[in-house]
């Protein structure tokens, strides 16, 4: 038996492909791990529940993602080997599988990233709200977390071809609700802050000036984005900047 016939043997080619796949898969896994570590992913995901779960299972987020990419390549190698060795000879099956595998891979990746981003945003938001000493405020980080997870889930399901129209509609209704309620609730703030930006940039009046806004007369004590604090002998008025624009301001000079 010479070399030529040996190389033509499907089983030999299949084995070669399999070995090549294992080597490449291992290398890609290692490379991914190095890249993710170098780009600071371990620090970014530190403290998120996903990372903590991974740690308790004796692994880490970086390792999971790296392993995933390695297993993806192993899977392709195995399938290619099977195809070459003609163990399963059904073209239709082959077509389905080649289309489906990358999608599953992306879907799993999206879910992992979704979990981490959700956990991380929950942490960031709760850290930001920590100075607010109100028990009910604890619900906001949770809402943020599950919103991110929901979006990730929709993307992942969309990847693997599940019908997600109903979920999308739900998301649209939810987003529209947040926007509408938000703008309605904060419209005074938005108008006031627009006026406040003008007041801060142009300073038509400053701290120490004697002014009159509407019925209130006094010395300006503080101007910030939303309100102007005006004080007379016994009372301090906190006037929204919106009102400063509506009523106009009178500077009083003795």
């Amino acid at each position: 038996m010479d070399w030529q016939t040996l190389i033509d043997e499907p089983a030999v080619i299949a084995t070669a492909v399999l070995i090549l796949g294992v080597v490449i898969g291992y290398l890609v896994g290692r490379l991914n791990e190095e890249l993710l570590t170098a780009s600071g992913v371990p620090e970014a995901v530190e403290g998120t529940p996903f990372e903590r779960t991974a740690q308790s299972l004796g692994t880490s987020t970086v390792e999971i993602v790296a392993r995933l990419s390695a297993w993806f390549i192993y899977g392709i190698a195995v399938l290619t080997a099977i195809h070459i060795a003609q163990l399963l000879d059904t073209d239709a099956f082959w077509l389905r599988v080649t289309e489906f595998i990358p999608q599953v891979f992306v879907a799993v990746l999206v879910m992992i990233v979704g979990f981490i981003v959700a956990d991380k945003s929950e942490l960031v938001v709760s850290e930001y709200l920590r100075s607010v000493k109100l028990p009910e405020v604890a619900v906001i980080p949770k809402v943020v977390k599950y919103t991110v997870l929901y979006v990730a889930l929709i993307i992942a399901l969309g990847q693997i071809g599940v019908h997600i129209l109903a979920l999308l509609i739900l998301l649209a209704v939810y987003a529209a609700g947040v926007v509408v309620v938000g703008t309605y609730a904060f419209q005074d703030f938005l108008v006031s802050s627009a006026a406040g930006i003008y007041l801060l940039l142009n300073q038509p009046y400053g701290i120490g000036d004697r002014v009159r806004v509407g019925d209130q007369t006094g010395i300006v004590q503080e101007v910030d984005l939303f309100v102007t604090k005006i004080e007379d002998d016994s009372e301090e008025y906190i006037v929204p900047n919106r009102k400063v624009f509506e009523d106009g301001i009178v500077r009083i000079r003795e």
Binding site: L200, L201, Q203, I207, G208, R210, I219, V220, Q221, E222, E231
Partner: peptide, 22 residues
Amino acid sequence: GDAGKVMNKSRPLSYNPFEKSH
């Protein structure tokens, strides 16, 4: 603190370097 009153009980010695700054 109480900057409004303090400003009314003082006068500038020269141009205020913090004018229109935040």
